[in-house]
Design a protein around this nucleic acid. Sequence first.
DNA 1: TTGCGATGAGAACGTTCGTTCTCGTATACT
DNA 2: AGTATACGAGAACGAACGTTCTCATCGCAA
Lengths: 194, 194
Amino acid sequence: MSPVATMTMDDADKSILSAADDLFYSRGIAAVSMSDVRDRSGVSMRRLYTLYPSKGALVAGWLAQRHQVWMTWFTTAVDRHIAQGTDALLAPFDAIGEWVATSVFRGCGFINSIAEVGEIDDTHRLIIAGHKRDVLRHIAELAQRSDHPVPEWLPASLAVLLDGAIVQCAIFGNDEPLTAARSAALQLLGTIPT
Amino acid sequence: MSPVATMTMDDADKSILSAADDLFYSRGIAAVSMSDVRDRSGVSMRRLYTLYPSKGALVAGWLAQRHQVWMTWFTTAVDRHIAQGTDALLAPFDAIGEWVATSVFRGCGFINSIAEVGEIDDTHRLIIAGHKRDVLRHIAELAQRSDHPVPEWLPASLAVLLDGAIVQCAIFGNDEPLTAARSAALQLLGTIPT
DNA sequence: TTGCGATGAGAACGTTCGTTCTCGTATACT
DNA sequence: AGTATACGAGAACGAACGTTCTCATCGCAA
């Protein structure tokens, strides 16, 4: 049995991924060193490299975990807005609105990352594309739940509106693009016969 | 009179900015060293640092020039599609379609850059936000030229669709998001009484 | 021709980074 | 208790980068 002071492998992993998320998302991948991750996580260099044998592996682990955490947050927030009476296909815009309003918001971590990963590492690209595919898939599921008969191009259009809004909100530093995107979505839904 | 072999200051500047554009856009800012720019441009280190006293200054110069070049290309391509009979507010999607189809396409250079510049350098952020503001402004002008009475939220919505499509086309490596964005734009225009 | 300011080529410098290694300590096992 | 193993702290190492400096060369004025 380990004494209290020592960290289990699982605790170390959680601490590392939490530190990586804080640092990579807020500063960007290139601006964060492995020593930064060690200092923030309180894990030794040895443990860090035992769990993630390279910075690229750590980035991959971070992206994979951020995907899970983000999707859980997103679907939960969307469901909450739906439960409050928002149309299922407008709820994603309100969920993103909560995120944009936070002080930590710095755009989509996956979009931000793709500019930084060279052409080499396909692992990262696959995780990033997989994230966007899963978001699109979830919106398509929301469309199926909808009362409207939804045309097949609509979910993809809504996903494009969401990403465009996230990107522009980060660039302009306000939520006007999200408002415009929501207005467009509302208008698109209005064209569908009930 | 200078002999043919020597470069004028202007030639050097053009060569540097051309090299910077190739390298920064295709590989990302952090992955390109000043020596890379020197090698590609054929300009001496001395000249490079005389014209741009730091890498940050070079990045700023690159962003400013890319903004000019890109806007000129964009407005020209849009006008060409309008002249071919495309609706003024759909033409931007066809113009972007040409770009996405090229092998050099790697998303929006400005969106890609914002992830890489730290919180420090406001100069870069201002150029990037200014670029997006000018694109939005141009779409608003296209809307004014349109026969339709255009609601005020429409230009911003179209700009969001464009950026979302550019980002997703880069991530997925195909032009399906652009098709979806264009379909949405067409639908939005269809809701406007002529 | 001679001397001088400007320039190119690229070495040099100091820093940072990713990764590995050393060493001292603590834990587990007999 | 004694020994071997694992681990934390952080120094060390080699490479890469941004930036500056050296020195040889060149154009040009007198």
